[in-house]
Design a protein around this nucleic acid. Structure first.
Length: 212
DNA sequence: CTTCAGATGCTCT
DNA sequence: GAGCATCTGAAGA
């Protein structure tokens, strides 16, 4: 499995946010276990003009330093004292911007993901828990055992413990866009339609039929 | 399905 | 000291 190249990330952030949908996030744990999931929801953050971005107006602090790194770098930070969020750095180095990975569906290692999330075996989970394993930025990091320890990793490194490789992309007309979540403080930027998502085709309806 | 409170600790002022 | 790119479980519609 060949990771997406740095040129994939070295583009306009909105383009990358849409292009990341469907791609496969691969996480290798310290013991060698491999987890994988397909990205279903993203948000773009662009420091140059976006009050919701930690590096708005090129603000440089110890935390935001990673946002200025070269494209294809992982930016992880602690939020609300409990959870972590994962971003992919975009645009040329020095231009602070990135894509928040807001949601995914498990592809490999579901049992470990269930253990990381609920400390239970897969078959012990309620159906609601099974459907909500990775559908949120904090849940995704908890399920994949990601913390600030992974901040700064190179997502294009096939030998690293966190990278992204090509997966089945949704058709452009399947991609939905809307306002971003949880940025009420960001004034005019709260209305920017910089959140993107799609419904994976193998998701099932109430009566077990595959929808598309 | 919805709202709501509370948990928790780091980051920057 | 204030605020935060969130989640859970409980309770109500």
């Amino acid at each position: 499995m060949e990771p997406l190249p740095r040129t994939f990330y070295d583009r306009d952030t909105l383009t990358v946010a849409r292009a990341l949908l469907g791609q496969l996030l691969v996480r290798t744990l310290d013991d060698g276990t491999r987890l994988a999931c397909q990205i279903t929801e993203t948000e773009a953050y662009i420091g140059r003009l976006d009050k919701a971005c930690h590096a708005y107006g090129y603000r440089r602090t110890p935390r935001t330093e990673t946002l200025f790194a070269r494209p294809g770098t992982a930016y992880l930070y602690l939020i609300y004292g409990i959870y972590h969020c994962l971003n992919c750095i975009t645009e040329p180095e020095g231009e602070p911007a990135g894509v928040l990975i807001r949601g995914a569906v498990p592809v490999e290692g579901e049992d470990i993901i269930a253990k990381n999330r609920f400390d239970r075996k897969m078959e012990e989970l309620t159906s609601a828990q099974r459907k909500n394993l990775l559908n949120g930025p904090g849940k995704l990091c908890q399920g994949l055992a990601l913390t600030r320890a992974q901040n700064g990793l190179d997502l294009t490194d096939a030998t690293g413990c966190l990278f992204i490789c090509p997966g089945p992309s949704p058709a452009p007309e399947e991609i939905r866009a809307g306002k971003r979540i949880g940025i009420d403080y960001a004034q005019e930027a709260v209305d920017f339609p910089w959140r993107f998502w799609y419904e994976p085709s193998f998701r099932k309806g109430r009566r077990g039929r595959v929808l598309f």
